[in-house]
Simulated scan of single mutants.
Amino acid sequence: MNYENILSEYSNGITTITINRPKKLNALNIETIRELHEAFKHANDDDNTKVIIVTGSGEKAFVAGADISEFANFSVKEGGNLAAEGQELLFDFVENLSTPVIAAVNGFALGGGLELAMASHFRVASTNARMGLPETSLGVIPGYGGTQRLPHLVGKGRAMEMIMTAGMIDANQALNYGLVNHVVAQEELLPFAEKIASKIMRNSSVAIGKAIKAINANYKDGKNGFKVEIKQFGKCFGTEDFVEGTTAFLEKRKAEFPGK
């Protein structure tokens, strides 16, 4: 599938999606969000793809925010629709995929860029990464889930400070906050993410998808995460992966999960 603003490549069970607008520091415009939705959907629907890695082209930016020129003249209604449609099409969509999504944060991850990274299931960063939600410096607030996901990841106080000051934190501070899981040199970022992906791929993709659903339930209003966990746990017993996993364990061999 051909895209104007992104690249999508598959290799050995991993689909790598790269935001490719280097002249705009990979800023998210409406068309890029639509293309990302299609790329994520295609990868998630592909039985061969076990892990998705999302990153930005070049060495300067993962995504340096939204494309402000697109919405500078929006009305109240248009602004609300922009946030609602973007959350549904991309950010909530990514968070709830059954295929694990790793954000490989290279350089600036600001505004919508950080929101995309936070919607991913976890994050690794290069040493030159800089992260922040600068929206209040533009007279607006994060609209793609930033005010909700950031407190979950770093705590309410730190999220309040980051959003109110509109400042950036570096990779080491992001690691200290728990915003990213690992920090590595720029040239090691994708190989490191792929190494984690290879560890994930040893396990049952069916079980991983159910684990994602159970974990996410804890952060949704009106959901009892424990009940969702019980239900998803029970469903595992009806899968071919469960039969293979338990049989392999008892036979003291490596499991070959069919993904069913």
Rank of each mutant, 00 (worst) to 15 (best):
Asn12Thr: 11
Ile33Gln: 07
Thr32Glu: 03
Lys24Tyr: 13
Leu36Lys: 12
Thr15Cys: 13
Lys23Arg: 12
Ile30His: 14
Leu25Ile: 04
Ile14Tyr: 00
Ser8Met: 11
Arg34Asn: 11
Ile33Asn: 07
Thr15Leu: 01
Thr18Ile: 15
Glu31Gly: 10
Gly13Pro: 03
Lys41Tyr: 03
Thr15Val: 10
Arg34Glu: 12
Thr15Trp: 02
Ile14Val: 15
Leu25His: 06
Tyr10Gly: 00
Glu38Val: 04
Ser11Arg: 15
Ile33Leu: 15
Pro22Arg: 13
Arg34Gln: 11
Glu35Arg: 14
Lys23Gln: 10
Asp47Gln: 08
Glu31His: 15
Asp46Gln: 09
Lys23Thr: 11
Phe40Trp: 04
His37Ser: 07
Ile30Gly: 06
Glu35Met: 12
Asn48Arg: 14
Thr16Lys: 13
Lys41Asn: 06
Leu36Ala: 11
Ser11Cys: 07
Asn48Trp: 00
Ala43Ile: 04
Thr32Asn: 02
Ala43Phe: 01
Glu9Gln: 12
Tyr10Thr: 02
Pro22Thr: 10
Asn26Pro: 02
Thr15Met: 07
Ala43His: 01
Leu36Arg: 09
Asn26Lys: 08
Asn12Trp: 00
His37Tyr: 10
Ile14Gln: 02
Ile30Glu: 11
Thr18Leu: 07
Thr32Met: 14
Glu35Tyr: 10
Asp47Asn: 12
Tyr10Val: 01
Asn48Ala: 10
Thr16Ile: 12
Thr18Gln: 03
Tyr10Asn: 05
Asp47Val: 08
Leu25Glu: 08
Gly13Ile: 09
Leu25Asp: 08
Asn44Met: 03
Gly13Tyr: 05
His42Val: 03
Asp47Cys: 01
Ala27Glu: 10
His42Phe: 03
Glu35Trp: 13
Lys23Asn: 11
Gly13Asp: 02
Lys41Met: 02
Ile14Glu: 00
Arg34Met: 05
Glu9Ser: 09
His42Trp: 01
Gly13Ala: 08
Arg21Ile: 06
Ile17Ala: 07
Glu9Phe: 09
Asn12Glu: 08
Glu38Gln: 13
Asn20Glu: 04
Ile17Trp: 03
Asp45Ile: 01
Glu31Lys: 15
Glu9Val: 06
Asn12Ile: 08
Asp45Ser: 13
Asn29Ala: 09
Asn20Cys: 13
Asn20His: 14
Asp47Met: 05
Leu25Lys: 10
Thr32Cys: 15
Glu31Ser: 14
His37Glu: 04
Asn12Cys: 08
Ile17Thr: 05
Lys41Thr: 03
Glu9Lys: 14
Ile14Lys: 09
Asn44Leu: 03
Leu28His: 06
Ile19Asp: 01
Asn26Cys: 09
Asp47Leu: 05
Asp47Ala: 12
Pro22Glu: 06
Asn44Phe: 00
Ser11Asn: 11
Asn12Lys: 14
Asp46Arg: 08
Asn44Arg: 02
Ile17Asp: 01
Ile17Gln: 03
Glu38Ser: 13
Thr16Tyr: 05
Ala39Leu: 04
Asn29His: 08
Asp47Phe: 00
Asn48Pro: 00
Asn26Asp: 01
Thr18Pro: 01
Tyr10Leu: 03
Ile14Pro: 00
Asn48His: 12
Asn20Ala: 15
Asn12His: 12
Thr32Ser: 09
Ser8His: 02
Leu28Ala: 10
Ser11Lys: 15
Glu38Trp: 02
Leu28Phe: 10
Thr18Tyr: 04
Thr32His: 07
Glu35Cys: 10
Asn26Trp: 11
Thr32Asp: 03
Ile30Arg: 15
Leu36Met: 14
Ser11Asp: 01
Gly13Thr: 11
Ala43Glu: 00
